[in-house]
Amino acid sequence: MFSFCFDPASLDGLAWMACYLTTGKHMAIYTSLFTVLLLLAITAPSALLFGFLGASSARSPFPPISWIGKAYIAIVRGVPDIAFFLFFVIALDQLFEWIRHEIKCPEWTESIWQGNDFVVCDIAKLPLGNAPQWVHETYGFFLAVLTFAIVFGAFAANVLYGAMRAVPQPQLETAEAYGMTRRQVFWRILVPQMWVFALPGLSNLWMVLIKATPLLFLLGVEDIVYWARELGGAKTARFTDYPHGDWRMWYFLALLIFYLLFTRVSEIVLDKLMLKLTHGQATLAGEAQRKAAA
């Protein structure tokens, strides 16, 4: 990176460190920080969408739909979520390949389960065997995002379901008395009011989501955990210009500090947001703000 870096062996102290921390592979670990942020940016809204669908179907008056919604919420409780992560990544991959297999190779007569193998025809493979490396990586990342969205969608559904029930019943009854249909009551009265009740739960969920991002590593994405292990391992002079001992401990210390800062900043921002949202609300927190101002 810097011009004085062409002969690292002659450097020492800070200059060596500056060169070491800007090698190509270190650039990869900095980019993977953005992978984490990207994951959060995509997962948070999609999990919210899944959660909204789950919560509204759990409220449905038609039993089978409400069972599906309730089962979706309930199934994630009681089972470690890391098991879901490991499960969904394979299951989703196989599901997509199976669907493509059914469409593209209808003449295939053998079973796709052959002993201990999962076999689909070549053109149904995802991604295709001859696809470039970045397609494989993007597909892996897409599967990871979908998995996160499904699992966290269930948690969000739980929060939103609670929030929907927290909206005062008389409000809904009043709306019905005005002659609104079920759908109108839902969209015009219930949904706009539920967010204040949902926010504490959702902000808790956000913190949990941040702390779940290192699990990307288990889903086979080259994320910060992967690079920290890779770069921190002992290196001899034969393979690199920057030989060093086992530094994995320091890399993980850096990750620890990164996450601490991240959660701290989120905490502060969410507190500010809550203060804004409760302003003027007919809740205890809103009342406290009114009194403090008066």
Partner: peptide, 21 residues
Amino acid sequence: FLFRGSPLFIQFFFAYFLFLT
């Protein structure tokens, strides 16, 4: 704050490599 603010997964990794060192 230290233990609630960081992922358990990273704590495990850090502790393991710390003990290894």
